[in-house]
């Protein structure tokens, strides 16, 4: 049952991804309807899938790489729909749905069986820490997509060739504002995630900070976004620079997540 739900959600995200790429080249009312409805159905099924797993496992299903990637994609889609509701930028799907699909695809290839929880994870911190971390990272993922859109639009305006997506992309100001907003949402979430992680580490391993690779990368990410916010407020690093930084920031997150997973070292091995 869980498998069926997951594969169904994956299929709907796949449809949304394909159509969102078509949307890049030839957008119409029909393509946007297909994107929104298939992403919407996919999201509903995905939600059911996560709830189902929660019920079967008896704990928050963010305890291995498969679950984590899946939950992360879920957060990204959630934020996508919130932005869609607020700003109605259908083109955002072309920049975000492929990421969602790739994440879900890699999640589908990771081992899925539900194992008994290791004693370290049997803590109320599990839910708080992971949900905060993934929501924060999802906001950064979205800032990455918006940052890409900004760079594309800024390129059109700066180079004075107003072809391609110029018509359909929102204004630079709108993109910059969304980018800023996402980071101001993501940053406190990441901060709280790190704080809860530190507290949890203390209760589980007896020390607050262990220089585990994931801890180090989280800290690096935290600094990058702290710089993004600081530079914006103090030095006026907005627009292109902010867009570039939010792209770099998200790439760092991806390295942190998948790189460490591949190395399989450190205390965070379960994820």
């Amino acid at each position: 049952m869980g498998v069926i739900l997951f594969e169904l959600a994956l299929t709907f995200y796949f449809t949304a991804t394909i159509v969102s790429i078509i949307e890049l080249f030839k957008g119409s009312r029909i393509t946007s309807k297909i994107i929104l409805s298939s992403a919407g159905i996919g999201f509903a099924i995905h939600t059911a899938c996560i709830i189902y797993r929660y019920v079967t496992a008896g704990h928050i299903p963010i305890t291995n790489a498969h679950e984590a990637t899946s939950f992360f994609s879920w957060c990204v889609v959630l934020i996508f729909f919130i932005l869609q509701f607020r700003y109605r930028i259908i083109l955002l799907s072309s920049f975000i749905m492929p990421i969602v699909f790739i994440l879900m695809l890699s999640s589908s290839m990771l081992p899925r069986e539900i194992k008994p929880l290791s004693p370290v994870l049997q803590s109320y911190w599990l839910g708080i820490h992971t949900v905060l971390a993934f929501l924060g990272n999802a906001a950064f993922a979205m800032a990455f997509g918006i940052g890409l859109m900004y760079l594309v639009q800024e390129h059109y305006v700066k180079s004075k060739h107003l072809g391609g997506l110029f018509e359909r992309l929102p204004s630079l100001q709108t993109l910059d504002e969304i980018n800023y907003r996402l980071i101001t949402i993501g940053f406190p979430l990441l901060t709280l995630a790190i704080i809860t992680g530190v507290l949890w580490a203390e209760s589980a391993w007896g020390s607050y900070w262990n220089w585990d690779p994931r801890e180090v990368w989280s800290l690096i990410t935290w600094f990058i976004y702290a710089i993004v916010l600081h530079a914006r407020l103090i030095a006026g690093w907005r627009g292109k620079k902010a867009a570039l930084l939010s792209i770099i920031g998200f790439l760092t997150i991806l390295i942190a997540f998948f790189g460490i997973k591949l190395l399989q070292k450190g205390l965070h091995v379960f994820l």
Partner: peptide, 9 residues
Amino acid sequence: ELARKIFTD
């Protein structure tokens, strides 16, 4: 038209 693609408000 350009002004509209640079500024929102």
